[in-house]
Design a protein around this nucleic acid. Structure first.
Lengths: 225, 225
DNA sequence: TCAAAAGTGTTGGCATTACACCCATGA
DNA sequence: TCATGGGTGTAATGCCAACACTTTTGA
């Protein structure tokens, strides 16, 4: 257990951040600047410091690369194939993050905000080639969140404080990739008692819809689907 | 990405091996020989080499410490709290292993075999104090396998090639920690079609029981309970 | 008036649960 | 003969999936 001269893999953390945007599940990518994968997209990440926990490293790296803070973060899996990084042996602890798309955050493309450079949303259904083994990481993350939406209340991480049942249903449909029956969905959701009617309405192009919020904004396991 | 002079955590792998023995779920522990935790029990594990994958490291370390080979192994979670090891910063990738208790393997206590020294089965319901954060690791592993037995066919890893429905049910009861209705259990299991009747019987102290085997001995997701 | 989303109940099938008795064997 | 585990069927219940029409609004 002495601090031997270095024959240990480097430790990194990478974060797959998802949101639902334009009715599609999207993942946040950054452009790689240097090295063998320069120009490609990758998940935001970097080295873990020796004095910080893995969770703290993931949160710090995400904030440094994208400005995102206080998001839902959960450890996903650790990828450690010896050849996953051509620059040297790096073991990467991957995290999943989920955020609502509430304009609290602007990317480099499209909405032309004061965002971080070279940070982009890309729909998971049409991913560009990614650096390292990050395509595997995204696939693993997708499987995790699809499964977990089914037995937890994690949708709350994707939604703003007030939303309509239609928007809630659209979240599930975007993440799961299939349509749901509206009547059964509303019945089930309201029966679960996770929602609180806000007594307000959203007016839009059509008939106004009642607004709801979550009673509890913390992870719980509940049979949803 | 240059091989900087060492300011990276060390990387280890630890394995929580479970079996059902005496109708109780048990975990395999080794005695720590040196250092701050000398004398305590810990999970078998050790450093990951720079040229092996994490899965390979877990399998190698398990074989070195306990002689176990070709067991079901799956990555559990990565523990990286800065103070989890008083000797220095070590990030540990934890694995879960499941094995049948078929006498293919002798521990130091009890069955006085030609086993590895200081390797012991201990029931998870009455664990001794463990070194490092290994109590957390065992708790996390327990939650994982309890959940996973419910939606996969992973029991097969705990059973020998031939077994009775009573033994199968006893496995579930030991792992889940609750009793199941025998008739419903048999009905469900036989209906799932995962089992193959072997046409043989086990004779014991009482009425002979039909022997079954698994049709497929590989992980599959199937709604079991 | 039209298009588009919101809102609302009932029914049939399926799966799960609860439950009691006889059987075959070794001791 | 007795104790022990093996083996079997049915009835009630609850859950889920399928399904169509009316309402409200803005354009």
């Amino acid at each position: 257990m002495n601090a031997a001269p270095c024959p240990t893999p480097a430790v990194a953390a990478d974060v797959a951040v998802f949101t639902v945007l334009d009715d599609a599940l999207q993942v946040l990518l950054v452009r790689v600047r240097r090295g063998a994968f320069a120009g490609r997209f990758a998940l935001p990440g970097g080295r873990v410091r020796t004095d910080e926990s893995l969770d703290a490293a993931a949160a710090r790296l995400l904030a440094e690369r994208t400005g995102l803070r206080d998001v839902y973060l959960e450890q996903l899996y650790t990828f450690g194939h010896p050849e996953r990084d051509p620059h040297g042996r790096v073991v990467s602890v991957a995290y999943v993050a989920l955020i609502p798309h509430g304009g609290r955050f602007r990317t480099a493309d499209g909405d032309g905000g004061a965002g971080f450079a070279d940070v982009h949303w890309r729909p998971v259904a049409a991913l560009p080639p990614l650096a390292y083994d990050h395509e595997t990481v995204v696939a693993t993350a997708l499987a995790r969140i699809r499964a977990k939406l089914g037995y937890t209340n994690l949708v709350y991480t994707l939604l703003p404080p007030a939303f309509t049942l239609g928007e809630l249903q659209a979240m599930y449909e975007a993440v799961l990739g299939r349509r749901l029956d509206r009547r059964n969905f509303r019945k089930k959701m309201l029966a679960l008692g996770l929602l609180r009617p806000l007594g307000r309405q959203r007016r839009g192009a059509h008939r106004p819809a009642a607004l709801y919020g979550f009673r509890h904004r913390r992870p719980m396991v509940v049979e949803i689907l």
